[in-house]
Structures are given as structure tokens and as C-alpha cells.
Design a protein around this nucleic acid. Sequence first.
RNA 1: GGGCGGUUAGCUCAGUUGGUUAGAGCACAUGCUUGACAUGCAUGAGGCCACUGGUUCGAGUCCAGUACCGCCCACCA
Length: 911
Amino acid sequence: MSDELSPTYSPAGLEVGIYRQWEKAGVFAPSGHGSRVMGRGALEGRNASHDSRPTTQDPFVTMMPPPNVTASLHMGHGLNNTLQDVLTRWARMRGRPALWLPGTDHAGIATQNVVERLVAKEGQTRFDLGRGPFLERMHAYVDVTKETILGQLRSIGSSADWSRTYYTFDEHYSEAVREVFVRLYEKGLIYRGKYIINWCPRCLTALSNEEAEKEERDGKIWHLRYPLADGSGSLVVATTRPETMLGDTGVAVHPEDERYQALIGKMLALPLTDRRIPIVGDEAVDPEFGSGAVKVTPAHDQTDFEIGKRHDLAQIDVMTPEARMAETVPLRFQGLDRFDARKKVVAEFEALGLLVKIDDHRHAVGHCYRCGTVVEPRLSDQWFVKMAPLAKPALKAYADKKVKFVPERWGDIYTQWLEGIRDWCISRQLWWGHRIPVWYCDACGSKHASRTDLVTCPKCRGLLRQDEDVLDTWFSSWLVPMASLGWPEETEDLKRFYPGTVLITAPEILFFWVARMIMAGLEFRGKVPFHTVYLHGTVRDTQHRKMSKSLGNGIDPLDVIEKYGADALRYTVISGMAVGTDLILDPKDLEISFAPGRNFANKLWNAARFLLSNLHGAPRPLAGAYREVIRREELTLADRWIIARCDAAVRESADALEKFRLNDAASAAYHFIWSDFADWYVEAIKPRLYGDVPGGSIARAVAYRVFDTALRLLHPVMPFITEAIWQKLPGRTEGELLARARWPEADQRASDDGALAEFALVQEVVTALRQIRAENGVEPGKQIDATVVAATPAMRSALTLEDATVRRLAKVAKLTVGPAPTGAAASAVLSDGSTVIVPLGGMVDLAKECAKLAAERDRLAGMVANQEKKLSNEQFVARAPAAVIEGERKKLAEWTEHVSKLNDRRRALGC
RNA sequence: GGGCGGUUAGCUCAGUUGGUUAGAGCACAUGCUUGACAUGCAUGAGGCCACUGGUUCGAGUCCAGUACCGCCCACCA
């Protein structure tokens, strides 16, 4: 291990190497008992004097939303995993046994679609291959892709415990799924029945309500005339799906609708067919809408299905699974695609003079969430879970604050959904998935749900046949918090890590996944699976569109990692992700989005290079107070200031992380490192480090201490670069890892308001001098003289203590604290009323200087006037809190003083 | 149709229970081979905080309404 950092920061190789070190050391397994990975023990690898704080035994547990086995990394994963990693690393560094449980999801339809497409390229279908060989093919395929996505998650630095990686389709997991199915079945919460479900004619399977995404579309509504069978008249119905009229078995009107009351019970001659259908009265009909008469197609519409049931209407399924017209329709329509059939139906109505009108109509149409095909409501035999009994405890858990949402508003949405919950269609007509553990006996007609495979009928010894269908993939995902820890077995992991701490995921899957996990946790384990649900925003492009493959507006995180590094990716994601907002990135300009992170890393790298070449001999900082190594009286103002600032940054960062405000935590670290430490402190101590003035060893000790703290502070957000640098700091022992070091704790003894205020004055003086130089065109290299007319003891003190710093940073040869010199000079009045004066002789444009001072004075005079008005307002004085009034009085005094100083200056210059 | 979120600098966004002269990064302008860094340093310009009204001593912040953008939910065919 070389002691040097390379002159240029290049994340590419560095990050891979660092990650290997962490893995090798077993950093990712929770410390204490129960780790499956035998690596270096948590305590063994730590420097005892350094990390002596006790480990709290309250574990931090979070479950990774499992990416699809066939997924390749996109920014959604990047965001989600970075957030989880930051919180996990933070918890780990605070001494909590931290478990981040990773996994992959077998993802039913999505995965089967992928492999079916591959097979299609070979000119085959899954039916050509047969169920067994097709599934073998699928397993082989996902064995490969699974590693791809897991590897990609590692590349962004995810410190998940890979030894515990779960897969929703592995053997053990299947046991959990069966256990749950059988338990619900035995409890009577799972039933099978013929209902209207959402059918995807492309995927050839049923979908749950959640999987059929409603999208508003501009469509048409056709008004069709149906003649009465006895020729005594006709009636007009309106429909958005004319092709379904071939399956009409009735027309419904509102029972109290005066227009139609007399017709109830009469028969209609259904056009294009030779069928006669009745007119029925039903409350579900809205007399205000359309013509007030509804065609009833019980096999193709949810409402119609219910109306049909009430009136005992026949159910005619007019479509094949592929959504072509079935044999139940007249020959000329058979085999037509549903949309072609629609055209033909409309054309025939028109030809018959029965097409009344076509209106534009905007309505919601369901689409398959996997392939986008318009779903067909279809009568079908499926398995369902009765949800109301499961929803009840889930509602109560939220009401009782057993689980909370961040941001809070999601709690209402969760509640609304659970209150209106409908039964969950869990069977899918796929091959890829957990096969439904139900066996049928054709001999005696019995059916059996079982935890183990059955062959013969327990009733009649007849041969059994297993249900052909598989379970919805979410029927396994909803068990993640339990099954990933070994449930239904009562494992050590389960005892120790259930319930988890926080779930971090996207709001898109609040219903699909989060709510169902809560229900499952309560039902099968009696406890909510996590106490907090942090729902983060969505990654969008600059037009606020969701990033997606089809829109081509995605950003490939691997691309970003290669170009800018994982740390840069993480920094950008974290700093742009405020609670409750979306993350907007520009896919057309990666530089704009990710350069800030890269630049910050580079800054840190260079600050480290500088320090490393100047820290020799610095004592390795000890845990606890600064005064263990340095006596307070030896510290300069700048030292005291940076120590106090560092402590403030730690506090801010901790507060922010506690509230999931990761962006604030990142920005606290950023500003501390870049502005306070690099721009001011390092510049201030250079003379001491170079040996030009005494105090070098103290400066080194403080710089080391503060820098070390900064690296710990930032580590959860930018783990690679901080780790790489930290290991190079003097005195590190081989194998010592920042990833396992302790996060800094706020230290009461470091706070020093006096130092904060006084050094701020130093900064003001320097800035004012630089401003004067810039405004008056003073050559950059030229040394000047300056005088400060100090208005406060604090200013006098600050300038005495940091005279050299001011002179160095503002290039001042001689800095005088005293009365104003006479003659032409540029000047500025500072916040405490002190005046900075730079005699520039002929260089200064007197008229300009006078104008500048006058403008500044007028601005302040305006503020003073406002302030006086405010303070003379009796209402204000009477009602505002004393502290506020006090503050306002102080401001008035300061500004008044300020104005008079400005006038003094003008007078002195003879303006 | 119902519900929710957003509207602050050219861009992306902070602004936590109302109380300094509304902040950051990027972009922009000017100047800088300053013994870590030009992926940098310094200085600067840039804002009727969407609009209208209200509450209040005081509103970017609270309330009502309007406009636009976005999201979620919904069995008016």
C-alpha cells in the first residue's frame, strides 16, 4: 500500500478495489451474532481506542425491493439503492447491527415475456417446447441475468449482505408461498370462482386490478339502435365497445325512468344476430348518462356481469383468449380481431340504418402493466384472496401508528386504498411462477390445497392433477420481510431481524407491494414488517416524464459510473432528492447532472493530497474530545473555528439523516468540506504547515482531526473516495476500514460560538478587501496596505488573532487596526459597523467611490426607515414576542450605526 | 368524476413550527500558470417567491379562489 494518492482522481479502478476490500472483510454482514458470513469480526477489525463506543443492539434492518431477475440497472434502482445504502451505512457506522437484505424477484409475466421473445426468435412458442423444457430454459436464463443485476447493484456501492440474498422463486421461498396459500385457503380466505377479470390477450393471462393500468384516452362512444322484437319501436344504447354487442343478453334501464318504464320486460331483437334479449330494470343504470339505456354484456364487463346476475341473464363469451371473435358470434365475425370486429359491427349498424351517432368520448382504458396491450374484461375461472379481513388490521396498524409513512401524505392514500379494497385475483395463466398448490381429483371431484406435492386423492385414492396456473408474482413478494429471513421456519434471523426498521421504495408499488406486505406481516406474524415506509420520488427527465426505455429518455447508471464514478452518481442522486420530490435529471447532458458530484470528489481528493503531504508527524486523532491531544489555549482562532464548524456540520447532518433529509445531510458535508475546510481553514494554516510561522504541529493535529471527521461524515454518501483517502491517513493499520469505523458524534465541548462569530469577522474583512481589489482593478499579485476601523471588541480580537491570515488571503502587506487614514481610499463598512479602508492613492476613482458609498447608505437608510416604522407600530410592539422585538431593536441599532459609518466615510473622502 | 403534489435566479432545486438584507449548485460576466485542485481560485450580475383576494403587527411560509404542469384513484355504459 503506497502512502500517496495518485495526482489525478480516477474512480474507475479505485472503486472496484475498495468494494473488494469491504466484501473480503465482511463489512456488509450485521455485526454481532447471527452473521452468516465468516469474515473479520466487527470488533476485531477496529482500533479499540478509536471506536470505543458501545454497540447498541437495536438492529437496523431494511429490505431491498427486489429487482426483476432479468432487469438491468436503471436510474430507479440507482436512486433506490443509494438511499438504502446511505441509511444502512449510517446505521452501521453508528454501531447498530445493520442488515440490508438484498434479493431478486422472479417477476412472473415480465420474465416469461422476455424468454418467450427469445424463443420466438427461434421461431417457436412456449407451447412448442412444452411446460417442462420451457421452464428449464427459463431457469437457465435467469441464473445468468440474476448475477448481472446483482453485480450492477454492487457497482454503485450497495453494502447489502449478499450472503443473505433471497430470490422469490428459490426452494425455500416456495415453501413460504405454499404455507401462506394453504393457511389462507384453510381459513377460507382463498376461493375460486368465475368472475370478470382483466385479461391480457397478449400475455394470455389474468391480471389483478392493480396490474391493469387505467389510462385516459380520447375515444368514441357509439349510439346504437336496438329494435323491439314486436316491431313496436326501438331503443338507443350507447357503448364504447360496439363489438361486445354480439354478447349482449339484455338491455338495462333505470326502474324509475319514465321514458322506459313501460318497456321493462319486453324483448328486443338484437341486431346482427338472431337473438332476442330482454329489457330489465336495474338501479345501477344512470338515467342521466347517454340515452339512459345500457346494453348488458355479462361476460365482458364488470357492471354488466353484476346486472346479469341480478336478472339471471346469460353470459356469452364472444372472444377467444387472444381477443379474436369466438365461435359464439355469427360466422362472418368469427376469427376477427376485436378492433376489426368493432369496425365491422359499426359498419353493419350503419348499413342497417341503426347507427344513431358517434360522439367523441374521453374515458379510461385498462392496459397491461407489462406489455401495454388494452386489457379485455373477461369472464374467467380464477383464484382470489378475500382482502377485507386482511385489510382491517392493516388499517388499524396505521391508525395506531405502528407504521408511519414518509412523507406522511402517503398514509391517506394507503388508507383510502385499503378501505375500498377489492378481492385480489392471484392466479395467472403463465408457466413461470409458483404453481398453485391445489390438486383436483377427477374421480371424486374433490380438491385439495397442500404444503407438499400430492399424487393420489386422500379421499378416493384416485389420481390427482395439479392446477395448471401459477400465482401472481406479488403473492410471493408480499412475503419478502418474512420469507427472506427464513419464515415459516423460526430462524435466528427471523427472531432477530423481524420486524424491520424501514422500507425504502417508490410510491408506484405502494399497493402492489407495501400495503400487501403489511397485511401479510400482520396476518402471519402478528406484527407490521417495518415501522417506517420511506417513499421516495421518481426519476424524471427535464420535461418531467418518467424515464423509460420506450421514451428513450433513460440514463444508464453504469455509463455514469464509468464516466464520473459511483460516488458522483450517489452524490447527485442524494443531493437532488428532497423528501417528497422527484429527481429531475437531463438524459441529454450527463455533465450537467453529474459533474457536481465528480467535481466534489475531485476537490476532496486534492485536499487529501495536500494534507497527506503536510501531515507527517501529526498524531492520529483519538476518539472523544479534541483536548485529549491539544490544549485549548494552544489553538488559534482559526483552529477553534474549524473545530466548532465541524461539530456543527456533524449535528446538521445527523439531524437531517434522522428525518430522511439525505440531501441536507449531503449538503452539510459538502459545504463544510469545500467552503469551510478547503477554502478557509486549509488556506489559513498554510503558513503554519510550511513552517513560516510557529504552530505547525497544532495545525496538523487539528487538520487531521477535522479531516478525519469529515471523511466519516461523508462516507455514507460517498463511500469509495472517503474510504480510499481515509486508509492513507497517517497511522492507519493494515486492514482498517472506514466502512467499519464510527460515524462522528456531536461533541458539546467542540461548540464555540465566540470562535464562530470572530472568525466570521475575519472572513468579512478578507472578502471586503478582495472586493475592493477587484472593483478598483488592483493587480492580482500586488500587496496593499489596509486599515480597519474596528467598531467592536470582537473585531479587534479577531484581527489580532488572525492578522497573518487576513494579510495572506487578501494580499495585504500591512494591516492596521486604528483610526481612518486621510486621503483618497476605497472602503467598505462591515456588518458589525467596522470600516475597512484601503488607501489606493490615484488608483481610486473618487466619484465612483462616493457613489458606491451613497448607494449603500441609501439602501440601509431605507431599511432603517422600515425598521423604525415597524418598531413604532404599537400593534407590533404589543403582540410580537419579546425576543423578536429585541432582535428587531438590535437590527435597527446596527443599521443605524452602519448608516452613520457610511456617512463618516463620505465626509472623510469629501464626497 | 374524485383526490394529491408542484409553480422561488437562465436551468435543477433548498427555504423544517410565519420574524435578519430569500439561499445552493450549474450556467453567465470579469480577473487569475496564487508552492492540493482550471473537475480550480477570487469577485460580480441575476429573483413583483405563478396570479387574485384574505388572516396577521408581520406572509415565499397560513387560508380561499384562479391559471398552468404533473401524479394517483374511479364499474357512467
